[in-house]
């Protein structure tokens, strides 16, 4: 939904830039280009409404009866329109929400979406209008969980600030991993969907966002090269713990949490090792350049003599 709002806002800007153009005949070509690209479907819808509005405004020559209903949709009514577009996004969100209840039984693919659409009283045909249907539900779940994590963390700031860094991170990662418990039997297939090259870009983005959120909540405000190593390390830890959890049958996932703490300690150590390695490399390169310099000096002095 947040994303939908963003889309609507971008569209408003776009819309504002083309609204003054009186040449309705030329607009279609320009919009045609963008409408063939997939994510711009809403753009095209917007164009149609704009077009209808323009037609009804200047349509003395032939608009007449067919467009009178659209007269209130003048381009200036952008807010009403964007609310309408959010509604479209909402219908899909409703279906996705309802479909989550069927994931345990039906998996992440279209049958869960079809069942979800039935639950909210929409025709399951709407599933056909989803972009990348197979990944839609997994991506929705990831987004939803990341969002929930944010909310939970907001209430726990004080509690977290009293912990050591490693413990702090461990408890946040655990909070997030616990959200996978309801769908853990189907989580392996979700991971394989995310690994599909078509979906990998979104999956990576969502994971990067998650790792970033966790570091942020853990109180990290760094902006140097360390930023990357920290995120890469935590990403790896999160992923391994996530995989470990798939085959963990201990009550309450006890083993997973032990494993997670161990890996986070490793990561903290690895980061130290990494820093040491950097120092070592610097020392070595310095030494090497010194000896090279002296070597060339020697060469030049010997050639002179």
């Amino acid at each position: 939904m947040r994303r939908g709002g963003a889309v609507a806002r971008i569209l408003l800007l776009r819309h504002a830039s083309c609204a003054p153009s009186p040449s309705v005949q030329q607009m279609p070509q320009q919009f045609l280009q963008s409408s063939t690209a997939r994510p711009a479907s809403l753009t095209f819808t917007r164009w149609i409404h704009t077009n209808a509005a323009l037609r009804s405004q200047g349509g003395g020559d032939g608009g007449g009866g067919t467009t009178t209903a659209k007269t209130e949709e003048k381009p200036s009514h952008g807010d009403a329109k964007s609310a309408h577009e959010e509604e479209i996004v909402d219908e899909r969100t409703l279906v996705l929400h309802a479909a989550m209840a069927h994931v345990r039984r039906l998996g992440w693919m279209e049958s869960a979406l079809v069942a979800g659409a039935r639950d909210v009283g929409l025709s399951p045909s709407i599933v056909g209008s989803f972009q990348r249907k197979d990944a839609a539900l997994v991506e929705f779940f990831m987004d939803d969980c990341n969002h929930k994590l944010q909310e939970q963390l907001e209430g726990k700031e004080k509690e977290l600030s009293n912990m050591l860094l490693a413990d702090r991170i461990a408890s946040i990662v655990r909070m997030r991993l616990e959200m996978n418990v309801p769908v853990i039997t189907k989580w392996a297939s979700a991971l394989s969907i995310q690994a599909n090259p078509l979906n990998a870009a979104t999956a990576l983005k969502q994971r990067a966002q998650l790792v970033d959120d966790i570091w942020h909540a853990a109180g990290d405000r760094s902006s140097d090269m360390d930023w990357y190593t920290k995120r890469a390390l935590l990403g790896a830890v999160y992923m391994t713990a996530e995989l470990y959890m798939l085959t963990d049958f201990t009550p309450g996932y006890r083993d997973t949490w032990t494993f997670l703490e161990g890996r986070i300690k490793d990561a903290v150590n690895a980061r130290k090792t990494g820093q040491e390695a950097v120092h070592l490399a610097q020392a070595v390169s310095q030494g090497l350049s010194n000896s090279l310099a002296s070597f060339f000096n020697k060469q030049s002095t010997s050639s002179k003599s």
Binding site: P28, L32, T36, F44, T45, H49, N51, T66, T67, I88
Partner: peptide, 22 residues
Amino acid sequence: PSQEKFAAMIADAGFQEVQYEN
């Protein structure tokens, strides 16, 4: 009607998210 024109007609009939693919 051309692609865009027909798309506009579909939207006029009350449909949402009108798209077309050539």
